[in-house]
Measured scan of single mutants.
Amino acid sequence: SAVVMEEGSPGEVPVLVEPPGLEDVEAALGMDRRTDAYSRSSSVSSQEEKSLHAEELVGRGIPIERVVSSEGGRPSVDLSFQPSQPLSKSSSSPELQTLQDILGDPGDKADVGRLSPEVKARSQSGTLDGESAAWSASGEDSRGQPEGPLPSSSPRSPSGLRPRGYTISDSAPSRRGKRVERDALKSRATASNAEKVPGINPSFVFLQLYHSPFFGDESNKPILLPNESQSFERSVQLLDQIPSYDTHKIAVLYVGEGQSNSELAILSNEHGSYRYTEFLTGLGRLIELKDCQPDKVYLGGLDVCGEDGQFTYCWHDDIMQAVFHIATLMPTKDVDKHRCDKKRHLGNDFVSIVYNDSGEDFKLGTIKGQFNFVHVIVTPLDYECNLVSLQCRKDMEGLVDTSVAKIVSDRNLPFVARQMALHANMASQVHHSRSNPTDIYPSKWIARLRHIKRLRQRICEEAAYSNPSLPLVHPPSHSKAPAQTPAEPTPGYEVGQRKRLISSVEDFTEFV
């Protein structure tokens, strides 16, 4: 048969007729292969192709491409040299491709048809291009793949890379869960390890502090508590009631339409708007009261037996805890006409967050109470924005700035309102402590230090009264110190430094 060459192609190359033996071998191979691939376009007849790359030819070592076609129900084999250009295909004639002069020997084609199974398996396991790669995943090629499931790999992101949580363990979102698992493993320790309690022994800490320079003076030496005195035992138990972190309780009120001037209507609300609910979820963490331990979680007086509701929101960081007394989460009882059960919590909070959804101005004093010092007013606006402002009593104007209003988005509203309420509550605590000038409020841990110092002074006084020969370590507060001759004046800087060093040991009130 003659071949018409394309323009620009090399000279004529004689194409030899395939021997009958080659056709029989390739026909047997075509019957084993699956003929249901995917359909081509209507211009080209339905056909199945599979590209198999052999590394070497037997005796020649030339890479070839073998295409199996099922045109007219008769499979045909096409061998081509890759750099050459194939002729145009037609549905009426068999596929013809040019070969190099080196394939002119018909014996070479017979060798190609009689490829060993080793070469076929190696060509099938190679990388296939384009559409033949999808075909190689079918059941027909499963014989050339190794048996057994593939090893499982770690989760992959859409980009093909490992997620960040699997790369950096410290930033993994499941870090707290692993800590819980470690605690569970520790709890399952053997009885021999049960006595080993991690941490620092208080006796060891005391020993280090006792021999430090801070205890060089007799006034700073630790003293032993009497065991037989019940009054001192009660004082030590009272110390446990003062937490070592700051605590805040903040009221949250929802004002519906037409309720801006009605205290009873505001306290009777059992739910609010959708934006109000989203605002609550951002204030803190939802907790169930019956599962809380009052000595570990500050509840601000809420009952854990269901008297004040089942849930509330709280927030904490390293040095403070805040609980929100939310009116809509507290039960509304029919027998309580004046809502006294709610007001006994909300009316005693220094700061209230008022979500004013009424469309009218909310005035300070609508919720009557002796300790309502500051109101954080949240007014929802259009386009997911809110107006946040402050209202306070006249005696609080020096501590709280009420002249600045803020426009905040719904997303950042819980954070801004919480921070403003916490700052206002700190100012309210300082303002409330002014009624007792001898006990200015600095912080909870300073209050613990003052309680310890008062307890020490009482013990020293009782020891001096029981044994008059012992001198008083600290003179009583009601006694007057003996007159001392004025010492020589020293520079102001040295006096300030000495006073600062003494105050650092005794108390921190002056620095606050």
Rank of each mutant, 00 (worst) to 15 (best):
G365P: 06
F415D: 03
Q391A: 14
N386S: 13
A481I: 08
V252H: 00
S219T: 11
L225W: 11
K444S: 07
N467T: 13
N356V: 01
S262G: 03
V236Y: 08
Q457N: 13
Q241H: 08
R234S: 14
G347A: 15
I353E: 00
E278P: 01
T438R: 09
S235F: 14
S235D: 15
T509A: 11
E228S: 07
I446T: 07
P486C: 07
E462V: 08
L329M: 07
M426H: 03
H375A: 15
R448D: 13
T485E: 12
I440A: 10
C340K: 15
N412P: 01
I407M: 11
Q293N: 15
G347R: 15
K368E: 15
R411C: 12
D336T: 11
K290F: 05
P331I: 03
D308E: 13
F371C: 15
K249M: 12
T332N: 15
L381S: 03
K406F: 15
I266Q: 03
S403A: 09
D317K: 02
N467H: 11
R454F: 11
V252M: 01
L280V: 06
F311R: 05
M320I: 13
V323Q: 14
M396N: 01
V354Q: 00
A421K: 00
Q497L: 11
N372C: 08
P414I: 00
Y274M: 10
H478M: 14
S268T: 08
L472P: 15
S389T: 09
Q429G: 05
T277C: 07
A463S: 09
D291L: 08
P471G: 13
E397Y: 08
R498C: 11
Y383V: 04
P243A: 08
H451Y: 13
N356K: 00
P226R: 09
R448G: 13
I319Q: 06
N356P: 00
L455T: 07
D317Y: 01
P442A: 07
L422H: 02
D317E: 13
D382Y: 02
E257Y: 13
Y355N: 00
Q237G: 08
D317T: 03
V374A: 10
P331M: 04
T328C: 02
P226S: 12
M396C: 13
H375R: 04
S268E: 07
Q391S: 07
I319K: 03
C385T: 11
F232V: 14
E278T: 06
S260Y: 04
D439T: 11
D395Y: 05
L302Y: 14
E263K: 02
G306V: 09
V351F: 01
L280R: 01
P294W: 06
G272Y: 02
P331C: 06
R456T: 14
S268H: 05
P482E: 13
R500Y: 10
L455K: 05
R450N: 14
D295S: 06
R434W: 08
H248F: 08
R458T: 15
E218D: 12
Q497F: 09
L299D: 15
R450H: 07
V351Y: 00
K363D: 13
A487L: 13
S403C: 07
S433F: 12
H338P: 09
L286R: 08
E288M: 08
A417W: 01
V236Q: 08
V408I: 14
S358Q: 01
N436G: 06
G359D: 03
C392E: 02
A417I: 05
S235H: 15
L381H: 03
A322Y: 06
Q241S: 12
P294C: 10
G398Y: 11
H375K: 03
K290I: 06
I377D: 03
L239Q: 09
S229M: 07
T366E: 04
K337P: 15
M320D: 15
T490A: 11
R344A: 10
A464C: 11
S443K: 08
D291R: 14
L364Y: 15
I502K: 13
M426A: 02
L280K: 01
I223E: 10
S219A: 08
G492F: 06
K337G: 15
R275F: 00
G301V: 04
R339I: 12
Q230C: 12
C314W: 15
K221Q: 15
R275V: 00
P489S: 12
S403I: 03
V400A: 04
S435W: 09
V416L: 06
I440C: 10
E384F: 05
K363F: 07
D401C: 05
A463Q: 09
T328N: 03
L225A: 15
G300S: 15
G359C: 04
E384I: 01
Q259E: 03
K343Q: 11
Q457E: 15
D217Y: 13
H345F: 14
Y276V: 01
S244K: 08
V505K: 14
K406M: 15
N436A: 09
H431P: 01
L455F: 10
A322P: 02
D341S: 13
K342T: 05
S229H: 12
S479M: 12
S466T: 11
D246G: 06
